[in-house]
Simulated scan of single mutants.
Amino acid sequence: MDIKFRFPNMINTLQVTGCHFDHQQPGWHYPRHHHHLFELLYCMEGEVEQEIHRDRFTLREGEWLLIKSGVRHQSSNRSGRTYGYFNVHFDLDDTDIRSRLSAAPFRHIPRSVGERTKLGEYVKKLEGIIPQSQNINEDASDQAGQLRYELSFEERLLLQSYTLLIIHEVLMLLNSPVLGPALPSQAPSSAAPRPASAMTADVAHAIEEKLLSGLSGDASVSRVARELNLSRSQCSKQFTKIYGMSPRQYVSRQKLNLAKELLVTTNLPVYAIADKLGFRSASHFSRQFRRWTGQSPTDYKPRA
């Protein structure tokens, strides 16, 4: 049977930061901190004590932990054994995925659940990307003194691919009843938050519509709040409950997605795209696009 099917256009960004394998000796401690990225942690050996908000628990070998962006946490190896782990910080500009990942401050994946998935297989694939010692540039070390390695183009693609596959497996677990609520053995405060009311969802969707309609002009949160008879803080709070990010972050992501699409699928000059997205000038747009992607709009455009 001849079936014709066209997939939708997809221009999304995956940010991967601090992806690494490491070992820490007994007594090691990483102080309380937070960051704007999601964090996935896999305990490969030993165990580590995690403290998130007021919850304290032990992450043991074979277990996974997803921590929502902005959540304060700290880690300590209080056991008498070496703690080995895989860790990755990431972010995606897909609003549906971010909303699912943001449903709870953190999610714990027990070993018995993780072993039913391909998570372990993908971690081994990532281990296979670890370079041989002769490929490491000893002059390029980070602030912690760890050596950095400049990945080849093929290795970067593999890193992004396996990271996305790991995120996919985690999302599948979050959507399945087999995982259950966040750490059910903990106090109710650590469980997943109560679902937002229908009214909150309606307000958030109304805010989204107005933000999208203003992408080419004034998409300010203050203006949208005034039009909906809300305070700016109410507007931000209700939107964040549903979408897992602030209205300002949402507008930036939508502008970035639209900018990428226009750069890739049209022949519009940079100044025309800047005007279409409501930037003051082409140079203002170029500076912002470089902050978003690390590339200039001209470099991002595909070559003929």
Rank of each mutant, 00 (worst) to 15 (best):
L277Y: 11
F90H: 06
P110C: 11
Q249E: 01
S213A: 15
S213M: 11
L211G: 07
S99T: 07
L256F: 01
E51W: 01
L164F: 00
A182V: 05
N229T: 13
E49I: 00
W292K: 07
V48C: 11
E261H: 06
R107N: 11
G62K: 05
L119H: 04
H53Q: 14
G214D: 10
P195N: 08
T13N: 02
N175T: 02
P195D: 10
R248K: 08
M44H: 04
I67C: 06
L101R: 01
S161E: 03
T163A: 09
R248H: 01
L230K: 12
D299K: 15
M199C: 00
K241D: 13
M10G: 05
V221R: 12
Q24D: 12
L66T: 07
R280C: 00
R78T: 12
I129M: 07
I207W: 03
G145T: 13
E115V: 02
P269L: 08
M172L: 13
L263T: 04
E121Y: 14
I3S: 06
G244F: 03
A104N: 09
R54F: 06
R223M: 03
K241V: 00
F153M: 07
G62S: 04
T17A: 07
E63F: 10
G244S: 10
P247M: 05
S286E: 10
